[in-house]
Nucleic acid binder design. Structure first.
Lengths: 242, 242
DNA sequence: GAGTGGTCTAGACCACAGA
DNA sequence: CTGTGGTCTAGACCACTCG
């Protein structure tokens, strides 16, 4: 039953109430919540509506529901952090891309093999330099399977983010993006592009995008200037969900 | 209605069907799904059950449901990558901790202020060295608000992960973990601890754990040897959910 | 206005946990 | 066995979108 004064759904109210009890310490890690029937009685709502509220809490990682036993309070998953690449770029100020080179590398099975592009020996490479207001921030190099009849449009090359570029240029649907974050020292050439000293430490972000059959569709390697770029992550990306 | 042959719920079958259609390209980005009523008719199930299936797809980021319009296919969120710290440590082989120092630093408002510990001038520091089978991998230094009557137990110090340590030693409930990933060169002292060359580039992982009022409860800074540790993230951590 | 998803009900039967 | 959550129904009314 929706109260007339407040337009927010009842199940949402219930979820917020429980959330507050958890965050205030009133409900501690491992505690058992009232049963769904009890909660339904307390809020004067049907059991399905209670379950809708509990689903929100489970999604946020605040409770763990076990069949036949009940719903237990769990510590929020602070060990799972989310990197939002779109937002991350914005945090570092909107980055302006400058296209350095686009190449179609034919008949280079070694390169294709290195990238995991089995059954394909033609590879497209896209090299870009990313700027903030005044300085070069990162060098991004992308590798894609060559796909007949799917031209790379100028606007896509410059402004599309990597997953979007893959989606536009590959037949297969991209379903997974794996990332490895590491560190390297800049080569002379890289240092020159970034207007930095040679051998300066740099953040290396490697992404591999896969299709549903675990076939790599594209690889991206980004070298970031250590003082001009920070990679951020948070355990609490649920925004207004709860 | 649950079919007798297969024990999986109907709403799950529906979600998997739609997922397959999206991954095969049969349903493309932006396409409109059949209405909930139509799907209910097709699968001979009630509308609430259809909605349960669509909720799974929405959670996985495969569809976007809009009131009054319908459910649209969206590209999976490949720009949102999840770092699983617990799993990440396992990927790099189980890390064995060695406690270097625990200190209670009294009356150092500058340090407390740097850490964001407003209204607190006593800070506990915990310094650890993390090993794989044979070599030192990382130096981790943790900073906690001093909390009266909450002693740091030996076992917690050594084996608890950072969010767990905070939860055990702070009155306030930790609700958010923000991370910044950057790069630094090793100092002479740090290089010696890691059995590495001075000025070697290293990965720096800084975590700040907050309470619900955005009060920092603890800070952790981890320096990782560039060749012995990799930080991984993936856009597809949903495991067996769909 | 007609059509859509959002919320909610008051039941039902099932599978699982535990005494 | 009782109590729990998991699934599912066949309705209902609402708020929103669009023609």
């Amino acid at each position: 039953m929706r109260s007339r004064e407040n337009l927010i759904p009842v199940y949402y109210r219930l979820a917020e109430d429980v959330k507050k009890q958890i965050e205030s310490g009133e409900l501690k890690d491992g505690d058992l919540l009232p049963t769904e029937a009890q909660l339904g009685e307390k809020y004067a709502i049907s059991r399905m509506t209670v379950r809708q509220g509990l689903a929100l809490l489970a999604e946020a990682g605040l409770i763990d529901t076990v069949k036949g036993k009940g719903s237990f309070v769990t510590r929020p998953r602070l060990n799972q952090l989310v990197i939002d690449l779109k937002h991350s770029a914005a945090n570092n100020g909107q980055l302006r891309p400058k296209l350095l080179a686009v190449n179609l590398i034919r008949n280079n099975p070694e390169l294709a093999n290195d990238l995991g592009f089995t059954g394909e020996s033609n590879v497209i490479t896209v090299k870009q330099l990313l700027f903030n207001e005044s300085m070069p921030v990162a060098i991004e190099e992308k590798f894609l399977r060559y796909q007949k009849g799917k031209p790379l449009l100028e606007t896509q090359l410059e402004y599309a983010d990597f997953p979007e570029l893959i989606a536009k240029h590959q037949e297969s649907v991209p379903v997974r993006n794996d990332m490895v974050i590491s560190v390297a020292a800049l080569s002379a050439e890289q240092a020159k592009l970034l207007e930095a000293d040679e051998a300066l430490p740099a953040l290396v972000i490697k992404q591999v995008i896969y299709s549903k059959d675990d076939i790599p569709l594209g690889v991206s390697v980004t070298l970031c200037h250590k003082d001009r770029f920070e990679l951020k992550a948070t355990s609490y990306p649920l925004s207004g969900r709860l």
